[in-house]
């Protein structure tokens, strides 16, 4: 297993370098321009000057190598300097990957946005899993019962109704229709500056998280509960279940120990593979509730043709996806004794 892991890790290096190049190439070919969203009152000569000051007049491969140098060498060295005070080279004047719209280091922007994305999107996954697993188990055990029918119906709705609809619907109900003094009123705009340092603020934090978390959780739970149900159904008809029952085991033990454990194998993989999406944020939901996390950062970067920002963010997502694919494969091996890699 260790050999396998090391071999896989080794292979990720060329894969990731290739991915970074492809992303850069695509971004470079996109007919987008960082001065495109500026007001019309800025004349073309000034726009040309701005492009030059951003380094856009250099050839494509120079810009790519510069980015590689900044991202693979300067940024890690800077992390070492900031976290451990280890100084290698010129620590104060290191050129870092800078966003074109904010002129600040991209990595700092990402670090600033990580908390709200992890809280909201991460929490929505946790809630989604907590809802989906019991629904999946019961739906499969009582297949075609009224519970199963309602569960199927709700998950179809969750799956097919887009978050920009459910999000706005919840805002209209809980922020507009319900009176602001009421206990049930929820804020439609997420306050990213809120510091949780008291019970009062914790309550505010919970309240502002409820709507975005529920919107995303409904969507995630819908997907996951279908997986869980299908996986349970596969296992329930297996011979070992009949054996377990024949041995006289209690139905609860059969279901929750034997069947559930085996059914969890594919579901755990699905969960592991979707962890990178947590970091990727939820672009639409973050926009609706103005959570302003990583998803919103990405979409603003794309709209403003902020190439260093988009390049860095997409590349970090790529790293996460590659890594969690590996994690999922390893988990699979650990959970399922029938699968061995060596």
């Amino acid at each position: 297993m260790l050999n396998y892991t090391i071999r896989r890790l080794f292979f990720t290096i060329p894969t990731l370098l290739f991915i970074s190049f492809v992303i850069f190439l695509i971004l470079d070919m996109a007919p987008n321009d960082p001065t495109g969203n500026l007001p019309m009152t800025i004349p073309p000569e000034v726009r040309e000057n701005i492009r030059k000051s951003l380094g856009l007049d250099a050839p494509m491969y120079v810009r790519y190598l510069l980015w590689c140098n900044q991202f693979f060498i300067n940024e890690p060295l800077n992390l070492l300097y900031e976290w451990f005070d280890w100084c290698i080279g010129d620590c104060e004047n290191r050129t870092r990957v800078r966003s074109w719209s904010t002129r600040s280091p991209v990595v700092d922007l990402i670090v600033e946005r990580m908390p709200q994305t992890l809280w909201v999107v991460g929490m929505s996954y946790v809630v989604g899993i907590l809802i989906a697993l019991p629904i999946g188990v019961i739906s499969a055990y009582k297949q075609y019962s009224w519970f199963d029918q309602i569960g199927t119906f709700i998950s179809m709705i969750g799956f097919s109704v887009p978050t920009f609809f459910t999000g706005v619907l919840l805002i209209v109900i809980f922020s507009v229709w319900i009176d602001q003094d009421s206990w049930f009123w929820l804020p439609s705009i997420y306050d990213t500056t809120l510091v949780v340092d008291s019970w009062g603020n914790f309550w505010l934090q919970v309240r502002q998280m409820i709507m975005p978390v529920m919107v995303l959780a409904l969507y995630n739970a819908a997907q996951l509960s279908r997986f869980m149900r299908a996986s349970m159904l596969d296992n329930l008809s297996q011979d070992y279940v009949r054996t377990a029952r024949a041995k006289g085991l209690k139905e609860k033990t059969v279901l929750l120990v034997h069947v559930l454990r085996n059914s969890m194998i594919p579901v755990v993989t699905v969960i592991a593979l979707s962890v990178p999406q947590v970091f990727g944020g939820a672009i639409i939901t973050e926009q609706i509730f103005r959570v302003n996390g990583l998803g919103q950062l990405l979409i603003i970067g794309i709209q403003g043709a902020d190439i260093p920002l988009v390049q860095t963010l997409t590349f970090i997502f790529a790293v996460l996806i590659v890594l969690f694919n590996l994690v999922a494969d390893i988990l699979y091996g650990l959970l399922d004794p029938r699968i061995r890699y060596d």
Partner: peptide
């Protein structure tokens, strides 16, 4: 897309400066 239309990308045929069309519409001001 606005970022393309109003952007000055030399390689794009769709910018408002190149104007490879008969009529184009946008807002301008001073």
């Amino acid at each position: 897309d606005a970022a393309v239309f109003f952007g000055g990308d030399q390689s794009s045929p769709d910018t408002f400066q190149k104007f490879f069309a008969d009529i184009e519409m946008y807002t301008n001001l001073f």
